[in-house]
């Protein structure tokens, strides 16, 4: 028995003697925590803390949100939530798709082959620290179309986390797996197929989840700077005319999209790695 085990057991013995609150089901805590947040929000508006008197209360927001979902224009005389969402999702989707389709193969190649490691990685290392949003002006000039420039900015945000994580995943491979493949008569291609790709999947998924988070940041910032349509654009335009209700709706919608997309990728990742759930 290790030291930490015995300490853990002693603590368990002590804690069992302490009076404790009855444990409630997990959803109860979740609900309480969210209510606490909504209460704080309401309170700040009610006491008109700093500029909060201009911000809608949770109840007003929910009412407006329902109207938007029913198809009401997001800003008076403007487009509906659905039109704006279409633009944003298309931009972020294209950027993420391009990012995944380029970063994963490149990451596998760079991790696998010294040639790619030497010739490609240094250039990427130079470009990597540039914040994606800093690309907006040059992307607008370089790509001329608004769609392409925003897609580029998203792509830059998505690309590097996936690339770096994929490379790490490939380089982390156990020597013994490599030896096992060769001593079973496998080739370098077999090694790639049976060891490198499957063992790097979870790193790829991690990179993709991080990348998508950055992709959403990038699309919102890019739309605020240069968009016509898009949820980020609508949110910023609403701010400029002090339509705070729409601003808050924009925030909620963007948060929901971000959460949904990373939940989707995590789910996909679990589907792709059925063996990892089994480790206990």
């Amino acid at each position: 028995m290790s030291i930490s085990d015995s300490v853990g057991e002693k603590w368990l013995g002590v804690s069992q003697q302490l009076p404790s609150l009855p444990a409630l089901p997990r959803p109860v805590y979740k609900g309480a925590s969210i209510l606490l947040f909504l209460g704080a929000w309401w309170l700040f508006v009610a006491i008109e803390f700093l500029g909060f008197r201009l911000i809608p209360t949770p109840v007003e927001t929910i009412r407006a949100l329902v109207e938007s979902i029913q198809g009401a224009p997001l800003t008076s005389g403007g487009q509906s939530l659905y039109t704006h969402s279409y633009y944003t999702i298309m931009r972020v989707g294209l950027g993420i798709g391009l990012g995944i389709c380029t970063a994963i193969p490149l990451g596998l190649l760079i991790g696998w082959s010294n040639v790619f490691d030497r010739y490609l990685l240094p250039a990427f290392e130079v470009l990597r620290p540039i914040p994606p949003v800093a690309w907006v002006p040059i992307a607008l000039i370089g790509f001329t179309s608004e769609l392409m420039s925003i897609v580029w900015v998203v792509f830059v945000g998505v690309f590097f986390p996936i690339l770096i994580n994929t490379i790490d995943g490939v380089k982390d491979i156990e020597t013994d797996y490599v030896r096992a493949i060769y001593s079973l008569g496998g080739s370098r291609i077999d090694l790639f197929r049976h060891v490198i790709v499957p063992s790097a999947i979870s790193s790829m998924v991690t990179g993709t989840v991080i990348g998508i988070g950055i992709g959403w940041i990038a699309v919102v910032a890019a739309e605020m700077i240069s968009g016509n349509y898009g949820v980020g654009y609508a949110t910023y335009q609403a701010y400029r005319v002090m339509d705070t209700q729409t601003v808050v709706i924009g925030i909620i919608i963007l948060g929901a999209y971000g959460a949904l997309s990373s939940a989707f990728v995590s789910l996909l990742g679990r589907r792709l790695t059925p063996w990892e759930r089994l480790e206990s």
């Binding site: 096992a180 079973l184 060891v195």
Partner: peptide, 30 residues
Amino acid sequence: PSERRGVVFQANRLLPWKTIEENVNLGPKM
């Protein structure tokens, strides 16, 4: 290395992402 010289490793080196059957079939399959 050669398939004429099979190796059993100290730490178990079945490929964790393959089922037992896929692991056993790996050499002949490759």
